[in-house]
């Protein structure tokens, strides 16, 4: 195979990977602060994708525009979920948190199956088949748009955590839970906001991903696992780590699909996870706990 074949795959994998990165960022924010494992992450993203499809068919909204209302909706959903259901579980053992989120995930997957049916759906945008050419390398326009949107949202998130008071307060909760309570932060409220932000992230990522892939109700668990792998490879709690690792996993998937078999592409991803867990368990950019 000629070299530009690989370059093509690498580049498009990297662009998809940035969207994966944003999806994982949502998970990382939630785990890093609330310390709850959101095993319904991929299912929440699938729900967001279906909302975006509805918006597209009802109002002709481009998914990249729909990501604002969808993100807002997911924020509210995540906020309420944390406030009502998850909050009592924060002090309970890990496996009960896990079971709670599994129950939520089972309900989400099957409610989607019930409402939207088992068939794959997608959104057709006008620029779906357009592409840019850089010499021999051809890149899909949708992929570039999606990746740029992912970078923009991630940038906004970094700015939020760095410069706003609420962002700083959330980081304080993550660093020292007891300390945050002592200085009078409303930890419960901040946790709920954090869960909302993580959900909004994954909602926005879902809208971007809608430009690249079809949606089926049963895809949720696969994306949950993918998000987890990206977060672990990047380093729990490291926001840049999630993006970098998303990029890495995106490229790995693309090259794995090319070199091995498209259906076996995730084997390469699992191999990376196992290697990282063995040789750098804190993740590529994580700090050792």
């Amino acid at each position: 195979m000629p070299l530009d074949f690989y370059l093509n795959a690498t580049l498009s994998g990297a662009l998809t990977g940035l969207v994966y990165g944003l999806m994982a960022l949502g998970l990382s924010v939630i785990f890093g602060v609330v310390r709850v494992v959101n095993f319904a992450h991929g299912e929440m993203m699938t729900a967001a994708m279906y909302v975006a499809i509805l918006l597209a068919s009802a109002f002709g909204l481009d998914p990249l525009v729909a990501m604002f209302p969808v993100g807002a909706l997911l924020f509210v959903a995540g906020y309420l979920l944390q406030r009502t259901l998850i909050n009592p579980f924060i002090v309970r053992p890990e496996h009960t948190q896990f079971m709670l989120m599994v129950a939520v995930a089972i309900i989400l997957v099957n409610a989607q199956l019930l409402i939207f049916g088992p068939n794959a759906r997608n959104v057709q945008v006008e620029y779906a088949l357009d592409s840019y050419a850089l010499g021999d390398i051809i890149i899909d326009k949708v992929r570039v748009y999606a990746a740029l949107a992912a970078l923009a949202v991630a940038g906004a998130l970094f700015a939020f955590f760095r410069f706003t008071l609420t962002g700083k307060a959330i980081r304080a909760c993550a660093d020292n839970h007891l300390g945050a309570q002592v200085v009078g932060l409303n930890v419960k409220q901040l946790y709920a906001i954090t869960f909302g932000i993580g959900s909004a992230c994954v909602g926005a990522a879902g809208c971007m991903l809608l430009l690249l892939v079809d949606v089926t109700p049963v895809q949720g668990p696969g994306y949950t696992l993918l998000a987890f792998i990206i977060v672990i490879v990047g380093g729990m709690g490291s926001l840049t780590g999630a993006l970098v690792s998303g990029l890495l996993i995106g490229v790995t998937e693309a090259l794995g699909g090319l070199l091995i078999l498209p259906s076996a592409k995730s084997m390469a991803t699992f191999a990376i996870l196992i290697l990282v867990l063995l040789f750098r368990p804190e993740g590529l950019l994580g700090r050792r706990a």
Binding site: A103, V104, A105, I106, I107, V109, N110, A111, Q112, L113, L114, P118, P217
Partner: peptide, 10 residues
């Protein structure tokens, strides 16, 4: 499809 598992999840 799905009704049963929604209830199961609940």
């Amino acid at each position: 499809p799905g009704v049963k598992h929604v209830f199961y999840g609940a």
